[in-house]
């Protein structure tokens, strides 16, 4: 029974490969894997994170298949692709948030500044302080605005005095562009803010622990266009100091905020390259179908 399924799977893969074979251009760099290829250059000159041969399994189901890519320092890289393509799963591997899911297993290599983050000696708590995350739905703690920001610095012992903490909170809110709106209401619950403000509060909360990389999982999908514009502006400003990985369903958003874009499809990394090139001149048929709206 299981052999049959396997055989069918292989046959399917081969069929997929045949039908969706990249339209080669001699100048295009292609990384070969067993039965598929990633089109485009996966490496960068000054990588912050380096991922190679990453496989992710949920139980027996494989959600990510041999994905390899670099994330450059101080760049914004966007992951796009149809729902269920594994882009969020891959994002969550980058700060080991998948550890909280019991059935999830990650293999391969993910390096942060040349350290394997899945190595035994890595403390996941410290890793997450360096690789922060902003979620799809704003999730402020049911605490005051001030306490929401102060939470991270407190648990990491980043400040010694109340004055330092006040300054850090103020600074983080300022960098998240929220300070003017909340200056007078620091003690009100974070949940009393509007959706867009809540999301910026979550970004401020992530910034407060001074991470090196910020992962954003569809940060604007629950927001209206005005709040979205504010967050996109913020992402652009944050790029100066942080490396940002953003998963998005909005191709316009990817085009607006990112320098590089990676297209995922059914757990495969199909194509990666400069954002301009991906959106103006996609080299893989699947990428082209997706960004022109024929698929997904």
């Amino acid at each position: 029974m299981s052999t049959t399924v396997l055989e069918t799977q292989t046959a399917l893969d081969q069929a997929l490969q045949a039908s969706t074979a990249p339209r080669h251009k001699s100048s295009v760099e292609v990384t070969d894997y067993n039965n598929r290829q990633t089109v485009g250059k996966i490496t960068v000159d000054n990588p912050k994170m380096v991922c190679r041969d990453v496989d992710v399994f949920y139980g027996a189901k494989q959600a990510i298949k041999k994905v390899g890519l670099d994330i450059g320092a101080n760049e914004v890289i966007a992951f796009i692709g149809p729902s269920g393509c594994g882009k969020s799963t891959f994002l969550r591997c980058l700060n080991r948030m998948n550890d909280t899911i019991a059935s999830c297993r990650v293999t391969g290599q993910i390096m942060l500044d040349n350290e394997d983050i899945y190595a035994k000696e890595i403390d996941v708590v410290q890793l997450r302080a360096r690789v922060g995350m902003v979620f799809q739905k704003p999730n402020p703690f049911p605490k005051s605005i001030y306490e929401n920001i102060a939470y991270g610095p407190r648990i990491h012992g980043m400040v010694n005095t109340k004055a330092e903490l006040d300054e850090l909170v103020h600074d983080s809110l300022e960098r998240a562009g929220l300070i003017k709106e909340v200056e007078k209401r620091m003690q009100e619950p974070g949940t009393s803010l509007s959706g867009g403000q809540q999301q910026r509060l979550c970004i401020a909360r992530a910034i407060a622990v001074n991470p090196e990389v910020i992962l954003m999982d569809e940060p604007c999908s629950a927001l209206d266009p005005i709040a979205t514009a504010k967050i996109e502006e913020l992402i652009d400003e944050l790029r100066e100091n942080y490396t940002i990985v953003i998963v998005t369903h909005s191709m316009q958003q990817a085009a607006r905020v990112s320098q590089r874009t990676a297209y995922f499809h059914l757990g495969d990394l199909i194509e990666i390259g400069d954002t301009d090139q991906i959106f103006t001149n996609p080299r893989h048929k699947l990428t082209e179908d997706y960004i022109t709206g024929r698929f997904g």
Binding site: M97, T100, V125, Q126, R128, A129, G132, F141, I155
Partner: peptide
């Protein structure tokens, strides 16, 4: 779960 995720993502134990 989003509360837990939010906390873990900040590096909380």
């Amino acid at each position: 779960q989003s509360m837990r995720d939010g906390s873990y993502a900040l590096g909380a134990t």
